[in-house]
Structures are given as C-alpha cells and as structure tokens.
Write a protein that binds this DNA or RNA. Structure first.
Length: 242
DNA sequence: AAACGGTACAACCGCGACTAG
DNA sequence: CCTAGTCGCGGTTGTACCGTT
C-alpha cells in the first residue's frame, strides 16, 4: 500500500501562503481552522493557520515597538494576572498575546534579573510585581476598566479608525491591497470555495470583517471573560455574519 | 570585515477546555 | 454520558537582524 501522504508544511510562511490564508478567512470567517486549512489548499494544520492569522495577518494588528503606555499597561496587568497573556492582550488592542509574551520575556525578564542582582536575593518570587517596577500609578487599571465598562470607546476606537495601523513598509499592506484587487484570488480551489461560501454568506464580502465589529460591544465586559453577543454570529453552525 | 552577543519576532508544541454528535 | 474534533492558551524554540567588539 502506498499512501501518498502530503507533508504538512511547517516553518515560515510565504507571501503566497499568507495571501491564500487571508482570502480563505475572508470567505469563511475566523472559525473552523481545520476546514480553512483544507479549503485554502495550504498544506498547513488548522492550528498553524489560526496562529498565522491571529499573530500576523489579522487586519488591525499593530506592529513595531510598544508605546510607553502599552509598556505600563503590560506591567500592571502582568502584576495583576500573571502570565495570562491572552487576557492581557485583550487590553491592548492590536497586540497579540504572542507579542506581549515575547515582549515580556525580552524586556521584563531582563529588568527583573537586573533588579535581582541589585537587590538582596531574599525574594525568591519569579514574578516581577508591578509595584517593584513602577511604584507610581497604582490606579490605572481601575481607570481602564471603567473606561471599557462604560462604552469602552477610548483608545480602541481610535485604533480601529486608523486601521490599518502604521506599519511602515510592512508587507501586509501589500497583501491587503492585492486582496482588494478583484482578480488575485490565488490557490487551487477558490472558485469552488467562493461558490460554497456564497451559499452560506449573506451579503457582499466586506474588506475588514472582524475589526468592523471588534469594538465596542465585544469590549463591554472585558473584566473577566468576554461575553460574545450571539448577534455576532459566533454561535456554532452559524457562519460569520459579515 | 568578521565574529559575537543580544534582541525581536515568528512559529511550533503540548495540554486543557469546550462542543457537537 | 462518552468520544472525537476543534479551539485557545501558555511555554518554548528557532532564526533573522542589529549593534558592538
């Protein structure tokens, strides 16, 4: 028996793969990653596709260095929640948990170690508390929470309005531009995919699906867990509502 | 100019939670 | 209730880039 087993691709994504993934996600929404992986013609796992989308291709992602405000926020939230990166990321629109995690590792660990070497080795705790880094601004979190609880329109909407954010020279710009052009649907099965998509999707395809509804509703309660309103079509079996 | 070390970022892995059948 | 499939999260690793020596 000869099983022609196609190797699942791993490693860095090519521009072409990105393009294929973006198109497929636009057609089917950010769900059913295994399905998306198959339909897209990419030889990737659904998991890999999801990761690529969430961390890199998602429209509205900020890139570049953390602003001082973001830095402070990360410090505060990490002091409060520990390594709950995804949770922290929800407070930082446009930033991914991966990004924050990496940032923490490179910056804060170093700072923590510096501190450790400077101070007495009595404190064995590995978690660097916010107080130890920034004794000032103790009430920022509360302020943020209130802001988000009561409409949450502050910084988030400003980011939304400025999407795609300033990613100077970032290739995603090009990708999105190419996607905007009508004739560039790559990959083997997009016609097919389109057909089946048109059955399940109502209305025209919108350019930036999820960021159109990203705020303010989804941020109404970010205290503990986001309560995704059913009207967003995130329920099972219901296709994306854009 | 080359070697080296540090930093930033992308991606994978393993595991637990959730959900549909 | 059980199971398989799927998703999301946190930890870890790999690597490209950049500054310094």
């Amino acid at each position: 028996m000869v099983t022609v087993r196609e190797e699942i691709r791993k490693g860095p994504w090519t521009e072409q793969e990105d393009l294929q993934l973006v198109c497929t996600v636009r057609l089917f929404g950010e769900r059913r990653w295994d399905f998306i992986a198959k339909v897209s013609g990419l030889n990737r796992t659904g998991k890999s596709c999801r990761l690529r989308w969430v961390n890199y291709l998602h429209p509205g992602l900020k890139r570049g260095r953390m602003s001082p405000h973001e830095e402070r926020l990360i410090l505060e939230l990490h002091a409060r929640w520990g390594n709950r990166w995804s949770r922290i990321a929800r407070r930082l629109p446009g930033r991914t948990d991966n990004e924050i995690k990496n940032y923490w590792r490179t910056h804060m660990r170093k700072k923590a170690q510096e501190r450790k070497s400077n101070m007495s080795p009595s404190s064995s705790s590995s978690s660097l508390t916010y107080q130890s880094c920034h004794p000032e601004t103790p009430s920022m979190i509360i302020g943020i929470e209130e802001q988000e609880l009561h409409g949450g329109s502050g910084c988030i909407t400003s980011i939304m309005k400025s999407t795609p954010v300033d990613m100077d020279g970032y290739p995603m710009d090009q990708i999105w531009m190419e996607i905007e052009a009508p004739n560039v649907l790559p990959g083997p099965c997009f016609d097919e995919a389109k057909d089946s998509a048109s059955n399940s999707l109502s209305g025209p395809l919108l350019p930036y699906p999820m960021w159109d509804y990203y705020c303010p509703e989804t941020c109404l309660r970010m205290d503990d867990e986001i309560k995704v309103a059913p009207q967003f079509g995130y329920g099972k079996g219901v296709g994306p509502c854009y």
